Deep mutational scan, measured.
Amino acid sequence: NQASVVANQLIPINTALTLVMMRSEVVTPVGIPAEDIPRLVSMQVNRAVPLGTTLMPDMVRGYA
């Protein structure tokens, strides 16, 4: 089972991601792999991401 990136807090739209906003968790469906967390830092979300939501590739500008 692969860990995915999950929002550690509410992340408002257009917010640049920081390490404290994300955690890794084994979830279904699988989202962005946890090993990509360092790559996600400073990328912006293109929608509001509620606490506990799995980050999907289409939620992060420039990721996919």
Rank of each mutant, 00 (worst) to 15 (best):
G52C: 06
D58E: 07
V5N: 00
V41E: 07
Y63Q: 04
N8Q: 10
A34T: 10
P29D: 09
P38M: 11
A16M: 11
V6R: 03
V26S: 10
V49E: 01
V6H: 02
L51S: 14
G52Y: 06
L17N: 00
L10G: 13
R23P: 01
G62Y: 10
P38N: 11
V60T: 02
P57E: 07
V26P: 15
M59D: 14
V41Q: 08
M56V: 13
P57F: 10
V27T: 11
L10A: 14
M43Y: 13
N46I: 15
N1D: 15
P57V: 07
V5H: 01
V30T: 12
R23S: 07
R61L: 09
S24I: 14
I11V: 11
V49M: 06
L40E: 00
V20Y: 15
A34Y: 06
T53P: 00
I11P: 01
Q44I: 07
P29S: 05
N14A: 08
P33Q: 08
Q2Y: 11
L19H: 13
S24H: 11
P57Y: 11
A64I: 13
L10N: 13
R61C: 15
M22I: 12
N46F: 08
T54P: 08
Q2V: 12
A34F: 07
V41I: 13
L19S: 06
E25K: 05
M43P: 00
D58P: 07
V6P: 01
S42T: 12
N1I: 15
R47C: 04
A64D: 05
Q2E: 15
V6G: 01
A48V: 14
I32V: 08
N1E: 15
P38E: 10
R61N: 07
Q44W: 09
L17F: 02
V20P: 05
V26R: 03
M43N: 04
L19C: 06
S24C: 06
M21N: 06
V41S: 04
V26G: 07
D36T: 07
A16Y: 12
G62K: 05
Q9D: 11
I11N: 01
Q2C: 12
M43C: 04
V45M: 08
A7F: 02
D58F: 14
V5C: 07
I13W: 06
S42H: 09
L51I: 12
I11D: 01
V41F: 07
Q2G: 15
A34V: 15
I37S: 04
S24K: 05
D36R: 06
N46S: 11
V27S: 08
T28N: 11
R61Q: 08
E25Q: 08
V20G: 09
P29F: 06
V5M: 02
L55N: 00
M43I: 04
N8A: 08
P29V: 08
L51D: 13
S24E: 11
I32Q: 00
A3Y: 14
M56I: 08
A64C: 08
P57H: 06
P50F: 13
R39D: 04
V45E: 00
R47H: 10
A3G: 13
P33G: 09
T54W: 02
P12N: 13
I13G: 14
R61E: 06
M56C: 11
V45C: 05
T15G: 07
I37W: 03
T28P: 02
A16P: 12
I13T: 12
V60A: 01
G62Q: 09
V45Y: 00
I32G: 01
N8G: 07
M22N: 00
L55P: 01
Q9L: 14
L51H: 12
V60M: 04
P50A: 12
L17I: 10
V49K: 01
L40F: 02
T18E: 05
V41T: 07
A64M: 13
D58V: 09
Q9F: 14
N14D: 14
V26A: 08
A16G: 06
A16T: 15
V41D: 03
T53Q: 10
L10I: 10
S24M: 10
M21E: 02
E35P: 07
S4G: 06
L55Q: 00
M56E: 08
M22H: 00
N1L: 11
M59H: 12
M21W: 02
M22V: 12
P12K: 12
P50E: 14
N14R: 09
P57S: 15
L51R: 06
G62E: 11
M21A: 05
T28S: 10
A64H: 11
P12H: 08
P50M: 13
V41M: 11
R47V: 11
A48K: 07
I13Q: 15
P57T: 05
A48Q: 09
A7S: 11
A7E: 01
Q9I: 10
A3S: 13
P29K: 06
N14C: 06
G31N: 01
L17E: 00
L51W: 13
R23Y: 04
V20A: 13
T54Q: 04
S24F: 10
A34H: 10
P38K: 14
T53N: 09
Y63E: 03
S42E: 06
A48H: 12
L10Q: 13
I11S: 01
V26C: 05
P50I: 10
E25P: 01
L17G: 01
T15R: 07
L51E: 13
D58G: 10
S24R: 09
A3W: 08
D58Y: 11
L51M: 15
M56W: 04
R47G: 07
I11Y: 00
P38L: 09
I11E: 00
L55K: 01
P38D: 11
E25W: 05
T18P: 00
V26W: 09
N14G: 12
M22L: 12
V26I: 14
P12F: 05
A16N: 06
N1F: 15
L51G: 12
G52H: 10
V49L: 15
T18D: 04
L17A: 00
D36I: 05
L17M: 09
T54Y: 02
N46W: 07
L40R: 00
I37R: 07
I37C: 05
V27D: 02
Q44L: 12
P29R: 03
T15D: 04
A34I: 11
V49W: 02
P50N: 13
V49C: 04
I32D: 00
Q2A: 13
P38C: 04
V5G: 02
I32W: 02
M59S: 05
V45R: 00
V6L: 12
L19K: 06
T15M: 13
R23D: 04
V27I: 12
L17Q: 01
P38T: 11
N8Y: 05
I13H: 13
E35V: 08
E35L: 06
V60L: 09
Y63M: 04
P38V: 13
L10H: 14
R47L: 08
N46A: 13
G62I: 04
A16D: 05
G31V: 02
A7G: 03
Q44D: 04
N14S: 08
L40K: 00
